[in-house]
Design a protein around this nucleic acid. Structure first.
Lengths: 206, 206
DNA sequence: TTGTTTTAACTAATACTATTAGATTATTTG
DNA sequence: CAAATAATCTAATAGTATTAGTTAAAACAA
């Protein structure tokens, strides 16, 4: 028949989504590196070896989450507001989107930007997605640095890297100090406006 | 006798140092979270259970390294130059010392500032050392922010946190991108002067 | 120098982990 | 209906941290 094989595939796809959903729950609860392949299987009511029909290894699960994480990240950075606004607004939007993604997807963020699992190395395909996403996010921002309102005395790439480091540092420290608080609250989560103002004070035309 | 018992204690202390040295080697080679209690014992020529005569658990080894790491960190931050110099010199010295510690002790730095081992929670005693070290490093720096050359329009604690985030972000990204390069080289490792200049441009009296 | 206590090592065992091999059952296709 | 495929199982391997119980040696007190 024509419908039957599709049903099996649908079941299979559903099982894969279940696996990834359970994996993320466990990563959030026990820590990214504490993910147990066996425990995922047991939660699904399977014996651990059966899970190998869906993923070749535990690291293959990490890899799929890594890839999807960067896809989501790229999408959210692309859809953020303020890209065509004044530099300050653009910077604020970029920092908030970056930090919000990290706060709302702490499991994925750790997997993507920290390296909590020592023997997990992203596949070439996932690495390509990752580099593409990061480059796209940076390209969006280079335009802002070429604004007529700014007077930056260092090479654009360096200015961009300073911004990235600032953004990353604020995000890391927000997650370390107030992981439960949304962007805008907490010791570091509330500093985005002050950070943007500092950058503008340094780079704005006098 | 009087000398004999001291000899045994000396042997014991030497073994403890050996254990910690081997642990750090393994963490650098295989990753912090990949440290194997059994492998340390085998390297020492012991059976794994014998190692429990020196450390109560694998996490106790992490804990001792965590504590010593913050002691070293505090000492290096306290001894750094430029603390009484002009604000820009003080900032540059602080950032360089912070990043150099991270670059030269990547195993300890990960254990201290990232959280690569999910079920390792520092003991209260080690946590106290850690908080003391961080607070001391920050206190050194508050003086710099009160300099007469600066005109900061936000609360001092916020200015301090912005600096910390910037410093931390540059360091994280240096280790992620050019872990083998010393401070001053590499995409992010060379940006400390530019970062300090940016902060001065924003905060210096006009 | 005795006897006692402490220390440091051992072996054996437990309960976990990811993973592989091979057999079996269920589902889908020709 | 028969053949192929997919999904599951059991059993086993080699590793992990850790605990219990034992033994030999060293240090201490008399």
């Amino acid at each position: 028949m024509t419908t039957a094989p599709q049903r099996r595939r649908r079941y299979r796809d559903e099982t894969i989504e279940d696996i990834l959903r359970i994996a993320r729950e466990m990563m959030r609860k026990e820590g990214v590196a504490a993910l147990s392949f066996n425990a995922i299987a047991r939660t699904l009511g399977m014996q651990p070896p059966s899970l190998y029909n869906y993923f070749d290894s535990k690291n293959a699960i990490y890899d799929e989450l890594f890839r999807r994480g960067f896809q989501d990240f790229a999408r959210q950075m692309a859809e953020r507001s303020g890209q065509d606004g004044p530099p300050g607004e653009n910077m604020r939007s970029a920092m908030e989107t970056y930090m919000r993604f990290a706060q709302e997807n702490q499991d994925l963020y750790q997997l993507m930007f920290q390296r909590p699992v020592p023997d997990f190395v992203p596949s070439e395909a996932s690495m390509a997605v990752s580099l593409g996403a990061l480059q796209a996010a940076q390209m969006q921002f280079v335009n802002a640095l070429h604004s007529e309102d700014l007077d930056i005395e260092i090479p654009v790439e360096q200015a961009l890297d300073l911004f990235i480091a600032f953004q990353h540092g604020l995000t890391e420290l927000h997650l370390a100090n107030n992981p439960e608080l949304p962007v805008g609250e907490g010791r570091f989560g509330k500093l985005i406006p002050a950070a943007v103002q500092m950058i503008l004070d340094a780079w704005q035309k006098v």
